[in-house]
Amino acid sequence: MNNLLVANSISKQFGNFTALNNVSINIPEGSIFGLLGPNGAGKTTLIRIINQITAPDTGTVLFNNESLNSNHIKDIGYLPEERGLYPKMKIGEQAIYLAQLKGMDRQSARSELKKWFDKFEISDWWNKKVTELSKGMAQKVQFIVTVLHKPKLLIFDEPFSGFDPINANLIKDEILQLNKDGATVIFSTHRMESVEELCEYITLINKSNKILDGKLDDIKRNFKTNTFEIAVNSLESQVLKKELESKYQTMTPTFRTIGDNLRMNIKLKSNQSSDELINLLNKNSKLIHFKEVVPTANEIFINSVEND
């Protein structure tokens, strides 16, 4: 698959502080790419390098197989985490201004904006000033300005902060639609449930170094511990419990079910198969719950960062 953006061995120093140390990422075209990491890991620096706000000390960035240059500015839409608008300028006017900075002409900026404003049902905000809007309303305008010029690459830094659940959902659907229409999305967030929901690929940066990257599914496969949640309703539950404890490594359950009288987590060794376990459980009991424990993005994040 073609990579829309390739960053090779990016390093960036600020005085004695290393913001990025030899970080490489590949962002496949058309993907939704999660850029994850704790606060201060270097995500924003990497995003700023992609946006040509700062230049890397060493390393190269390729956009669409070309060395990143000022022509690519119009192909990128960036919604920073710390974002704002001019408080004293009318919404419509400043949206046009920001679109013009991205290379759109006035006419098409205006007609595209009208479309988006209609879509979000905010047309009557056109002549309002930002000071008259709530934070969430201003965020909507910022979102529109980010995507207005139909960039190939969209970079969202915490896009859902400040939105109520309904509007967060609206924005999420718009992002998915844009992705479906061909835009590649970089998504930087601490909200792991949205990573889980949206991202196909992730990269985890910690203390200026990349510690993990790849397809989210592959990463999950690597991180799973062969642990299963089981729950049965058994006539001789104490006997079964003893048997399971002698054969397997058992743990306290991390889930809830109803109608069972034996519930636990079981970790299989590499020479033990899940079929055997199911057969054993089915022998004298009614199987109520059987599920492999797959690590969540949240667990992967915490584990990787803590073990780094």
């Binding site: 946006n51 040509q52 706000i53 000022s70 500015i73 990128i76 960036y78 920073p80 710390e82 974002r83 704002g84 608008l85 001019y86 408080p87 920001l98 900075l101 991205k102 910022q142 300005v145």
Partner: peptide
């Protein structure tokens, strides 16, 4: 200072050189 405190600046300089 206004552009900086209103946090519009990062959007602006992602389009133009500082």
């Amino acid at each position: 200072i206004e552009e900086k405190t209103n946090r519009i600046i990062e959007i602006v300089i992602s389009s133009v050189k500082p």
